[in-house]
Write a protein that binds this DNA or RNA. Structure first.
Lengths: 221, 221, 221, 221
DNA sequence: TATGAATGAGCCTTCATTCAT
DNA sequence: CATGAATGAAGGCTCATTCAT
């Protein structure tokens, strides 16, 4: 009987168990980021980890669970990084800026983790996960949509569909993700452009105290 | 050996050949859109087409060529649809709006084609195609970036990095693509929101005749 | 009904039929010699001939018959070349020399034909031909063995097993065949060495008039 | 992924691994010898071994490696058998006789192994092995050519091209190989004939102490 | 806990051959 | 006579997973 298989289970994981799982997840991230999801067979991950093929199956219910853990791990880190920074802001406008900036900052600082996630998603890794990518995205959009709603109520934002705007913000940020492997990509410059872009796109023109974002200094890439 | 394989050769395809290839491509689109790229084996596509496994290999150099044809076909249609509509506009602002609207209009009208492409791309189908996704995206960005540059020179657009803005537009549009399978998704509403979004984000505030886009009627989704 | 398929058939081949068959056989020889037997699919041969795949099946009962015709053609030419030259000699010793020399001379002059035969034989082409290679070889050995027997009766040759000696002669000659593709291989020098070799090995030492072959001028290769 | 695949790696094969590999190699020899190389698919070999198809792929990098192992195994055994017997002789003449006799003796004692090798070579098995048959033969000729050179320097052998003579010896021996399946073939008689043949063909006539080989007792086959 | 061995399904591809036109 | 279209079998290979030790 494998650990964590007990039905209805309390996840009673021993220390070794937890360590192994973490180790394998890290290893998987490296392999996926470097070799591509298509080449990330369990055999390859096992070899890169320095353990046997069977041990992965022992610690994870299947490849699906391992991949799932990779995603949960990285997305968890992203949330842990962004959350406090967004919540530190008092205005919706400030929170939006913090959202974009902190998201791109994390991507900049953890490029291989992002690369792994991109590889999984664009490599078909979601297909067998039983994850509905649409619903998953929907949920990830909720906080952002809520942020926009609050900003509209407060009069900081103009009228627009909060969900579509949220999807747009995510779409723009996510479209940067596949490019993190390009070391020349200047994510800080992107962050400046994107905050400006969405401040212009969302601000309420009838609000006097809404200072115009600085629009002068853009340089061509 | 397939017909028309001669290196450097004339692509002398017979009528039947062309018809079969087109039929198989259509069939592949349906299978991929419905069953997912991971399940779209040649065997499955053949069965769905009502032909033998070998016949696909007879008409296509390999799975790669078939998938490639699917992409070329759909992207070709998209370009054929958008091109005239964008070029019909005289101002950069108008072209940008036409670009967004016509792209989403095509997506709206050909959802299963878009779904197939999404499945291929997010299912790892690009990996074996020898297509560098980064470079491919870069090229698809060029016309848009050029549009922005012209608009900046003309004073229609404010100063911003044309490439990042181009990537943003594409990012937002592409982020809608995986959702076309959701029949409730109102792409026309999206189009309205997105044209407004990018008009606000790009317009030159120091230009008097730059009429403000209508910002009043947005409804929550 | 294909030509030549009539049961118990008179081979009534039209002129065109004969020409086509000859053309395809020549084409097959070229393809096999150049690309190797493993790559000599009917499709490849058809393309090289400039005709359709089906036409080969139309003119030949199957791939086996085509390959068979290649072998019969080349072996027939070899026999036609060697026969007169061997029979022109009056002594068994002379015939043996003529046998070796004319065989190597043909090989020298028709290297690509020999290469094709070698490719077929060493490429598994005999397996499906229903040809028992052992029996085939046995038959090809008969004239040579007979030659040796006559020479022994006449007292030209010493006592030895004629069949084994025949096999040895063929073995040595055949061992040169795979090397004809090496343009540096000097088959004339080989012929000189081999005639000497077998004259020494077969001559009857108790026969006074048996002139010693010249043994002085050998050069290292 | 197979064990022991690490590039540049230590070949740490477990005991079971070694045993399985040996078992499969033996099994492959049997199948190839009995059914022919063309029919020796991995599936057939697996069934004959009593294991699953996948297990062969697990233990061998591919069919090529398996076939390669068969050849290496048999050729290694041949060398191990012949080497000491040749080296035990003090004269070049003696070594030549030992070479021929021991080679044929091995063939006589291991007919199915020889049959397998013959099947592989004459069945096209070398084509995908990346083995240049010409070069491979060249190397196998070296020791023999060297033997002849030494004998010529010592005055035991007459003047002749050592390489051509070496090729002749091998050619004659190899021409016996395809016949080992014939149980009536008397390889011991062949050995007697061939040693005499090559002693006559190579001996230095100007050397007094060069005793004439016995030439009297040959029987017709 | 951990391993190496073993399985079996599925995939893409090649190819000789057949057939309607 | 000749073609191109179509078939179906077979082959080698990869891979997640299971199991005895």
């Amino acid at each position: 009987m494998r650990p964590g298989t007990e039905t209805g289970g309390q996840k009673t994981r021993t220390f070794v168990e937890q360590a192994r799982r973490a180790q394998v997840v890290e290893s998987a991230i490296e392999v996926i980021a470097k070799e591509g999801y298509a080449n990330a067979s369990l055999a390859r991950i096992a070899r890169h980890t320095g353990i046997s093929r069977g041990l992965i199956s022992y610690h994870f219910a299947g490849k699906d669970e391992l991949i799932s853990r990779v995603l949960v791990t990285v997305f968890g880190e992203v949330a842990a990084y962004m959350g406090p920074r967004v919540e530190a802001e008092r205005t919706a406008v400030g929170q939006l800026r913090a959202y974009i900036e902190s998201n791109l900052a994390y991507m900049d600082a953890h490029r291989s983790r992002i690369a792994a996630v991109v590889e999984i998603i664009s490599g078909g890794g979601l297909a067998t996960l039983g994850v509905d990518p649409i619903q998953a995205e929907e949920e990830s959009l909720m906080p952002l949509a809520e942020l926009f709603r609050r900003g509209q109520v407060d009069g900081e934002f103009r009228a627009f569909d909060p969900l579509i705007m949220a999807r747009s913000v995510r779409g723009v940020i996510d479209s940067m993700a596949p490019r993190v492997t390009d070391v020349d990509l200047d994510l800080k410059a992107c962050a400046r452009e994107l905050t400006t872009l969405f401040e212009l796109a969302t601000r309420n023109p009838s609000r006097r105290d809404n200072e115009s974002p600085d629009v002068s200094g853009a340089k061509p890439s």
